[in-house]
Design a binder for these strands. Structure first.
Lengths: 112, 112
DNA sequence: TTCATTCATAACTATTTGGTTATGTAATTG
DNA sequence: CAATTACATAACCAAATAGTTATGAATGAA
């Protein structure tokens, strides 16, 4: 993942509405109306948030009739996670413990 | 950490210049001029980036004469990390493995 | 066929962001 | 003291962001 993609991922995560949507999507695939339900904003505003998440590669969209079914695309989230983890592992001991476990079990570069 | 602080942390991380500065700070405390050296932008632009990082709580500043010594404040970075980890662990097997390890070794809520 | 539902797009606005140049202040050096 | 260094602040600008209302297209239901 290059710097510009990482820009997009972190920018997408910098809005509470979008984080809320991702949190909902962690429960499983759903359509846009369901994702929108908790928020008091117009439908086009929701549509824009979806585009931001999609532009960052954080979600995938499939169409089923008039509904757009949205699901998480975990890889970019993982890249962001790994970026933070890499630069925080030096000062946060928990990561050292995790890292030791990963090294011991050859999990440092898992296949999925 | 509340939603607004998390907004600020992710927004701060959404710029490659600021991520670069944090990466440099992972090597240890340094002054602003040293942090600025790799970037072809004006000194006030650097000053603004520092304010963004400081506003997000990601760095701490102490003065030594005319220099401002900057160091990482790891707690907010860890919050962002944990947010991502929490919502990604459900779909990324590495986190499942890590989680199993943490549970097994009672490391789920370490003291530091 | 007609109406309702689910979504996108266009056009607009206010605010924020990331940069600039110009200037100022405090600390160090010569 | 005078010059340099290390920073901040002010004022400005262009572009991006997050919202709005109005409109339209496609699908599904009555």
């Amino acid at each position: 993942m290059n710097e510009k993609q990482l820009d997009l991922v972190f920018a997408a995560l910098s809005d509470a509405t979008r984080r809320g949507m991702l949190a909902r999507l962690a429960q499983g695939q759903t359509n846009i109306s369901t994702l929108a339900a908790p928020y008091k904003m117009s439908q086009p505003a929701i549509s824009k948030h979806m585009r931001v998440l999609e532009g960052a590669g954080l979600i995938k969209r499939t169409r089923k009739g008039r509904e757009h079914l949205i699901s998480i695309a975990p890889a970019p989230a993982r890249e962001a996670h790994d970026w933070i983890a890499y630069y925080t592992r030096h000062w946060i001991s928990r990561f050292d413990e995790v890292d030791a476990y990963l090294a011991k079990n050859n999990l440092k570069n898992p296949k999925n």
